[in-house]
């Protein structure tokens, strides 16, 4: 059975057997670029044949819900505590793990996901102090980093550069 998903001029056909998914763990939505980048990342993942699943607290999820009411880019959304419990209990696994990190709590969530799943996570580092925050990461991960607070373009460019490699190699 095939599933066709259209994204503007791009379209792909993915067989059920090859279907991949990505968990996007959102942080606190206090940094303005997070929701814009999350939606853009969901769009890009879909063009690469990957189904995004969003985990976050209620505020982060509602930002996505209100910005994408028809779920054109987003899909399933789960509460972050439930998501971590499901991973810890082995009830759920994903093809890729992408964690939004702009503060110490983000590092803690990324480390937790990496430790529980044993897979390399993609840490999406942004915000005013993205460099200092990124330097505290001591666990296996791929970093996609840019100083993006209000303007998402620096981080969008980084995602455009690395996402095809991430989907092919992780």
């Amino acid at each position: 059975m095939n599933n066709t998903w259209y994204a503007g001029r791009e379209s792909i056909i993915v067989s059920e057997k090859e279907r991949k998914d990505a968990l996007l763990v959102l942080g606190c939505p206090q940094v303005p670029v997070q929701t814009a980048i999350a939606l853009y990342l969901m769009y890009r993942l879909r063009t690469l044949g990957v189904t995004p699943v969003v985990a976050g607290n209620q505020a982060a999820r509602m930002q996505v819900e209100v910005s994408d009411p028809l779920h054109h880019y987003g899909g399933e959304m789960v509460d972050i505590d439930t998501c971590i419990a499901d991973l810890a209990e082995g009830r759920r696994r994903y093809s890729y793990y992408m964690v939004f990190v702009h503060n110490d709590a983000g590092i803690s969530y990324a480390a937790t996901v990496q430790s529980i799943t044993g897979k390399k996570v993609v840490a999406i580092l942004y915000g005013e102090h993205f460099r200092e925050v990124g330097e505290t990461i001591g666990f296996p991960c791929e970093k996609v980093a840019a100083k993006a607070v209000h303007n998402p373009m620096p981080l969008k460019k980084k995602i455009d550069e690395v996402l095809p490699w991430v989907v092919s190699n992780l």
Partner: peptide
């Protein structure tokens, strides 16, 4: 990380 404390998985590095 993920060790349950008070029935919830613990978060951290």
């Amino acid at each position: 990380p993920g060790f349950k404390i008070f029935e919830k998985p613990i978060i951290g590095v």
